[in-house]
Design a protein around this nucleic acid. Structure first.
Length: 440
RNA sequence: GGUCCCAUCGUCUAAUGGUUAGGACAUCACCCUUUCACGGUGGUAAUAUGGGUUCGAAUCCCGUUGGGAUCACCA
């Protein structure tokens, strides 16, 4: 184990969705690829919106996906540490009090925008006199606090976007402490990354300007910013960053029968120049991680493609991987798995073969001939072929006219694995009853 | 509006000044299967747009158009 440490830092304010999960997957894969630690950090600084059930769901989903963590922390338990840092930075003048109300700030922003100016905070609070402040206090106002950005160029080498450069003057001093004294995301995040020795941060590109501000925070703490990788954001089919994506829950996908490996591999390879294909396991997938293979434009996430891919994943799963979820034999699994979209669908064929179904008699002549000639069938190819030929001779039917009624009578449905294979499991007895129209 | 990012087959992308513009997914056709499906083989399909630079541009430069991010007392 080296000193590489990577983290996934969700805020428990909603269910795990495809965008979240992608970030988790990349961070986890990077930790494994570099042989480092993976940390789960619950960013619950927003007490109003954070919920225990969301936090539990995050853990459930990560575990189900196979993204286990070596260490964890919760921001709501580290307030003391944040206060310490706050006091130091305040003394240094990097944190300053502001007295504008949210409404006043909103008005200022709108005014600047309408003048064609960037809606950046004007640092009015820094020009306040003692009397001004005393008056605000007397009015019953409570201050919120901002982090003061130093002028100059902020730059870093991003693992996916290359060299990035921002002029600090184009950025607004971020608010880091609310009027009620609680912390906003920026500072606790940096303090934690610093304290826990986080070496790499992978997150969405919506964070790039945050990163610029946070780099100065790392420096203010006397530390050095970790390596950053900002992933292009996923978009929906229609092009826009769809709200559906935000609501596309991993739990729902799981319930639909999408495999954890399908989700991980799909998210890890979408937007890269590599083929989306099944991987043996997560560590093999981790070894394949390469940020230089990622494009810089925003890939479209299509749920249909994920489902198609899931089929491929299911098809190459061994019996050992599914036996705990299915009550069936290896022989049966191997016979039908090529035909499944989800592992759960195996149950459908299991019922068709071993339980009772209602046959559909589409062609009485074919079914009668089939029933009459079934006695010689022994479950092998040779007697199966003899049986088919006998029906063909007796009825003069062939091809679809022959097989469609047989399939309907024997399985009660018009599609599925090869009839020859299914009949082997259905057996002569059951088949005969079904062919004569009886439930069996 | 300021700042930043992006633009190649339907989709994800490769081609770091000279390629018949390549691959994967989807699609279509054919083959296999005496049916559907599964599987196999092959095909169709792209450089947003206008100017430059150059012997030569998908590639470099400028403009246009289009898309996205951010500018929260969310994270």
């Amino acid at each position: 184990m080296n000193n590489v440490r990577v983290r996934f830092a969700p805020s428990p304010t909603g269910w795990m969705h495809i965008g979240n999960t992608r970030t988790a997957v990349f961070n986890w894969l990077l930790a494994k690829k570099l042989g480092g630690e993976f940390m789960l950090r619950i960013d619950d600084t927003d007490a109003m919106r954070s919920k225990k059930e969301y936090e539990d769901a995050i853990r459930d989903v990560l575990l189900w996906l196979g993204l286990s963590w070596d260490k964890e922390a919760r921001q709501s338990e580290r307030k003391q540490r944040y206060d310490e840092v706050r006091d130091v930075l305040m003394k240094q003048g990097r944190i300053y009090a502001c007295w504008e109300s949210a409404e006043e700030l909103e008005v200022m922003r709108k005014k600047l925008m309408s003048q064609g100016k960037p809606p950046i905070y004007d640092r009015g609070a820094l020009r306040l006199s003692e009397e001004d402040i005393a008056r605000y206090r007397a009015e019953g106002r409570r201050p919120h606090y901002r982090f003061k950005l130093n002028d100059g160029v902020i730059e870093w080498d991003d693992m996916v976007r290359g060299h990035i450069r921002y002029e600090a003057a184009n950025l607004a001093d971020p608010v880091i402490i609310r009027e009620d004294g609680s912390y906003l995301y920026h500072l606790p995040s940096v303090i934690d990354d610093f304290d826990f020795g986080i070496t790499h941060i992978v997150r969405g590109e919506d964070h790039v300007t945050n990163t610029a501000a946070q780099i100065q925070m790392f420096e203010a703490l006397g530390g050095q910013a970790p390596q950053f990788a900002h992933l292009p954001l996923l978009t929906g089919k229609e092009g826009k960053l769809s709200k559906r994506l935000g609501s596309l829950g991993v739990r729902e996908l799981r319930a639909e029968g999408i495999e954890n490996m399908a989700i991980c591999a799909f998210l890890a390879k979408l937007g890269t120049s590599e083929a989306i294909e099944p991987w043996k396991d997560l560590s093999a997938l981790a070894q394949s991680l390469d940020f230089s293979k990622l494009g810089r434009s925003q890939p479209k996430f299509d749920e249909e493609e994920l489902k198609l891919f899931n089929h491929k994943v299911v098809r190459q799963m061994s019996f050992a991987q599914v036996k705990d979820r299915l009550d069936t034999t290896e022989e049966f699994w191997e016979a039908i798995k090529g035909n499944l979209d989800t592992v759960q669908e195996a149950k459908i064929w299991s019922e068709v073969c071993f339980a009772q179904i209602v046959p559909i008699i589409e062609d009485t002549q074919v079914c009668a001939a089939a029933a009459e000639n079934l006695d010689g069938y022994c479950g092998d190819d040779a007697t199966y072929n003899e049986w088919i030929n006998a029906i063909k001779t007796a009825t003069g039917k062939k091809g679809k006219e022959l097989f469609h009624p047989l399939r309907l009578a024997l399985t009660g449905t018009d599609n599925g694995p090869e009839l020859k294979v299914l009949l082997k499991f259905i057996g002569r007895q059951k088949a005969k009853l079904r062919l004569s129209g009886q439930n069996a």
